[in-house]
């Protein structure tokens, strides 16, 4: 892709501090991955537990490079007519109607079948042409003049066939449309694929991508993330909150609270004017952090102990 601000991807440090300014506090690994993806023109496959900011990374990259973001959500049964292109059937039908009416005047004066067929061939065939092509996200990303950020979200939800279909796009930045031929990217997009690991992705796909795993952040990083997202929260409360969430992640839960949940929680505590983490408040707001009743039942009896440990 044509990057208008070359200086913004000059080194991983610059990427990192640039993301900081946009409010996306990231680790060294994330910044290095974005840097490499821009420099090597390779797609990044981002994996990690839900809520650690995988999708957000693509959004922020688009914002940072001031490029358009094209997003494609994957789901089971997604096929190329929904992801790549579709013909405008209605208009094609109308076209054949018009053609039928015009046919008489085109054929006028032709004698014999051979000549008619010849005339028909001289007549430009636009039935399958770009005019009747309805672009879908992938094709749109290839057609952007100055390149784009293409986010293929939750690739693990799509079928295996679709994954195979993506391979051509990811390695050569081109797609084949049987009726037209190969469409090459006007400018190579930067591709982000995200996965929650609900199924193992194919080796062929992994081979074509840089692989970035985003784990839960350590407490220091999470402190900074919350400070940047919820700047009004008091420093002491923030520390307690982050430590509490870290303690929860150590417990055997069905779904550990992710960063997005701690941010929500911080916002809620701010709204409730909580000054210090107390068992009663924690108990009342626990459903913001934990999304399963089982988990809440596991944690509730432990709240007193956990809160005491924070002080």
């Amino acid at each position: 892709m044509i990057i208008r601000h070359k200086d913004r991807i000059a080194s991983p440090e610059i990427v990192k501090s640039g993301f900081d300014d946009l409010g996306y506090i990231c680790s060294e690994a994330i910044a290095t991955a974005v840097y490499l993806a821009c420099q090597l023109q390779k797609p990044i496959l981002v994996e990690g537990p839900p809520g650690v900011g995988k999708t957000e990374l693509a959004k922020k990259t688009a914002e940072y490079l001031s490029a358009p973001l094209i997003r494609m959500q994957c789901y089971e049964g997604l096929d190329e007519s929904k992801a790549l292109y579709e013909w405008k059937y209605g208009k094609q039908l109308l076209y054949t109607q018009v053609l039928k009416d015009q046919l008489g005047s085109v054929m006028q004066g032709a004698s014999g079948l051979d000549e008619s067929v010849e005339r028909l061939h001289q007549f430009g065939d636009i039935f399958y042409s770009e005019q009747f092509l309805e672009t879908r996200p992938l094709l749109q990303a290839l057609r952007e003049d100055e390149g784009a950020i293409l986010l293929i979200d939750e690739i693990d939800k799509s079928d295996q066939e679709f994954e195979a279909f993506l391979l051509e796009l990811l390695s050569d930045y081109q797609v084949s449309i049987p009726e037209i031929g190969t469409v090459e990217a006007k400018s190579k997009p930067i591709v982000f694929l995200t996965s929650n690991n609900t199924r193992e992705l194919g080796d062929a796909l992994k081979r074509r991508c840089l692989h970035l795993y985003i784990p839960f952040p350590d407490t220091q990083l999470e402190n900074r993330i919350i400070a940047s997202q919820v700047p009004q929260i008091a420093e002491e409360l923030r520390r307690q909150l982050v430590d509490f969430v870290a303690a929860l992640r150590d417990m055997a839960l069905k779904k550990e609270p992710a960063v997005s949940e701690s941010i929500d929680w911080a916002r809620a505590l701010l709204l409730l004017n909580v000054e210090e983490l107390e068992p009663q408040w924690v108990k009342n707001t626990l459903n913001l952090l934990l999304k399963y009743q089982d988990d809440i039942e596991v944690v509730e009896p432990e709240i007193n102990r956990l809160v005491r440990a924070l002080k």
Binding site: E28, A29, T32, L36, I44, K206, C209, L210, H211, Y213
Partner: peptide, 16 residues
């Protein structure tokens, strides 16, 4: 060295 380690890790190791 630390950055090289991260960067190479992105290209050669593709699962946890």
């Amino acid at each position: 060295k630390v950055r090289l380690k991260t960067a190479l890790g992105l290209t050669v190791a593709k699962c946890q």
